[in-house]
Nucleic acid binder design. Structure first.
Length: 215
DNA sequence: CCCATGATGCCCT
DNA sequence: GGGCATCATGGGT
């Protein structure tokens, strides 16, 4: 799989949010390779976007990452226990980012299941046995970080590294992505209504599930 | 399927 | 001190 080059990320957050759909998100941590196909994203458009951490040009130790050049990981803690993985977009000092909201598991599902079981120390997590379970397995920003082993130690890292990268898996997206409102940003006033959430069509997702199963 | 709720730590949206 | 770019669970429908 071909890692996406640095130039890929040097575009605005809305374009990048669309472009990342269907790409493979890969981590290779301590010899454990896990990956998933990006199925859902949200754009956060920085200074002008009331939902963005960088709204109004806010700079803090946390948001500093968003001001880096495109192609970095922006990872932060949410609700006290989950990490959110964002891809920094655009050129330096333009603080836009794309939240990865869902991936379809590709490689290393057994390792993902182990990580999820470890995270919530009670129940064992069974590997998905059908398409519905596969789609529910790593389909949220917190869950996919658990599955891929992403925590805040990855903040600011470039996304063409050895242990974290995004790659072109050769998957062809056939349909336009679905557009919808972003999730859980009620505080964002008019920005809460912008259709800045992008999802692969059901047909494309079904194809990707089969792709994963063929390996 | 839907909705309500608790867990939990950091950042100030 | 308020409130989060969330998830799992347990109930009802």
């Amino acid at each position: 799989m071909e890692k996406l080059p640095r130039d890929f990320y040097l575009r605005d957050g809305l374009s990048l949010a669309r472009a990342l759909l269907g790409k493979a998100f890969v981590t290779n941590i301590d010899g454990v390779l896990t990956s998933g196909i990006i199925s859902e994203t949200e754009a956060y458009m920085g200074v002008i976007d009331k939902a963005s951490h960088a709204y109004g040009g806010l700079r803090s130790s946390r948001t500093e990452t968003m001001y880096l050049e495109g192609g970095r990981a922006y990872v932060y803690l949410i609700y006290g226990m989950y990490n959110c993985m964002n891809v920094v977009a655009n050129k330096e000092d333009v603080p836009e980012a794309v939240l990865i909201r869902g991936v379809v598991p590709l490689d290393g599902i057994s390792h993902m299941a182990k990580r999820r079981a470890e995270f919530r120390k009670k129940t064992e997590i069974a590997e998905p046995r059908n398409r519905k379970e596969l789609l529910n397995f790593s389909n949220g920003p917190g869950k996919l970080c658990i599955c891929l082993g992403i925590d805040r130690s990855f903040d600011k890292r470039v996304l063409w590294g050895d242990d974290i990268y995004i790659a072109d898996a050769g998957i062809v997206i056939e349909n336009e992505p679905l557009l919808s409102k972003r999730v859980n940003i009620d505080y964002a006033e008019e920005a809460a209504d912008y259709l800045w959430r992008f999802s692969l069509s059901d047909d494309d997702i079904i194809k990707i599930c089969q792709y994963g199963g063929e390996r």
